[in-house]
Design a protein around this nucleic acid. Structure first.
Lengths: 176, 176
DNA sequence: AGAGTGATTCGATGATTTTCTAATCATTCT
DNA sequence: AGAATGATTAGAAAATCATCGAATCACTCT
C-alpha cells in the first residue's frame, strides 16, 4: 500500500516528531510550536499541512488561532502492520511462478529441471532473462550463461529451443 | 531517543521496505534480492548494511553466499513507542526553565516580570535570545525587539543590564 | 472598511540520501 | 597459488526534501 510508505516517511523526520510530541502533550498552533522549536512559522505550517493531508493531525479554527490536534488512533498499530505489503494485490499467476521458481532454484542454481511442461517453461524463461533480445550469441556464450544456473548447459539449451524460447541457425542462437 | 528516529528513517524507504518484505518471506542474499528487485548489488548491499548497523537484519556466511535474515522482534512494538520521546532524558534544569517560561509567557508575550531573581533571569535570557552576539544595537533597535515581548521595554532593558546580560555605552547596547 | 495578527503559499537554496559504475575485498574451488 | 564469484566500498550524479524570507490570505476587532 502506498499510504503506508507515506506515513512512514512522515514519521521519519526529526522536526515532525518534535511536533507530534508537542501535540501528544496538548493541542497547539503554528506560532506556538514555531516558538517552541525555534523554527519559522512557514516551516511548521509546511509540516503540519503535510501531516494533515495524511490524516495524522486535524485542525480547527478557534478565535485567532488554528488549533492542531493529533489523530491518535493512527499510532495504535504495531510497526509490523506498516511494513508488511498486502500480498493480496499480487497477481495469482505471478504468485504461482514465484512458487515454482523457489521450488526449483536454490541459491540461484537450478536444482532439477521440472518434468511438467508448464513448470519447465517457467524455469527456462527465468534463465532466458539473462539473454538480451535482438542480439545473437555464439554457442560458447550461450553455454557460459546457462552454466551459471545448471551443470548440464546442453540439456538446458536444447530444452529452450524445444520450448520455443530460443532459436538457432548454424552456430548462432537468439531469443525468439 | 536518537535510535528511534534512525529506525523510522530506515523503514521510510520503498526499496528497503521491498527488501524487508522479501526477508519476511525467507532469508536471502544480495545477488538474489538484487535480481528480484531489478537493482544493482551495490544498491542492495548499501541498504542491507544500513539495516544491519541498526540491528534490523543479521547476516552470516554460508558457503558462497552471505545470508541475510530479519530481526523480527523489532517490528512488534506499536508505532506509538517509536514516536514518543523519552522525557526521562530531559535535563531537570531545562525542565524547570520550560516551566518558568510557560508560567510567565503566554502566546509569546511576557505576562509579568517575575520577582524572584532566578526566575527573572531565565525570563530575561529568553528574551535576549533575540539578540545576536558580537554586534551592537542602538536604543531604538533594542526597544523594538523587547517590545515584541512586553509593553514596558524600558523596564526590561534596565533589568537586562542589571542582570549582566546586556551592557551599554552611551546610546549603544550589546550582549555580554 | 481597515488595521492587526496568525496561517498559508511560493520560489529558492542547501542538505541529505539513493543509486549507479568501477574498483577492491573475501571466500571457495581447482 | 590463482581463477571465479559474491560482497563491499568509494566516488559521483541525481533526486528528494526541509527550511527560509517574502508575499498573500483569512479572520477578528475596532
Amino acid at each position: 500500500m502506498k499510504e503506508k510508505l507515506e506515513l512512514l516517511k512522515l514519521l521519519a523526520d526529526e522536526t515532525r516528531l518534535d511536533i507530534l510530541n508537542i501535540l501528544l502533550r496538548e493541542d497547539s498552533y503554528v506560532e506556538k510550536i514555531s516558538c517552541d522549536l525555534s523554527l519559522t512559522p512557514a516551516t511548521i505550517c509546511y509540516h503540519l499541512k503535510k501531516m494533515e493531508a495524511a490524516g495524522v493531525v486535524n485542525c480547527s479554527r478557534s478565535q485567532f488561532y488554528i488549533i492542531y490536534s493529533l489523530n491518535r488512533e493512527i499510532f495504535d498499530k504495531p510497526l509490523y502492520e506498516l511494513i508488511k505489503k498486502d500480498t493480496a494485490v499480487i497477481d495469482p499467476d505471478e504468485k504461482y511462478r514465484k512458487e515454482i521458481l523457489s521450488n526449483f532454484f536454490k541459491y540461484g542454481k537450478l536444482t532439477q529441471l521440472p518434468t511438467q511442461r508448464k513448470k519447465r517453461e517457467i524455469v527456462l524463461q527465468e534463465i532466458a532473462k539473462q539473454l538480451e533480445a535482438n542480439r545473437t550469441y555464439d554457442e560458447k556464450e550461450i553455454n557460459e550463461i546457462i552454466h551459471r544456473f545448471h551443470e548440464d548447459h546442453c540439456l538446458i539449451r536444447r530444452e529452450m529451443i524445444a520450448c520455443g524460447i530460443l532459436t538457432r541457425e548454424k552456430e548462432t542462437y537468439w531469443l525468439i
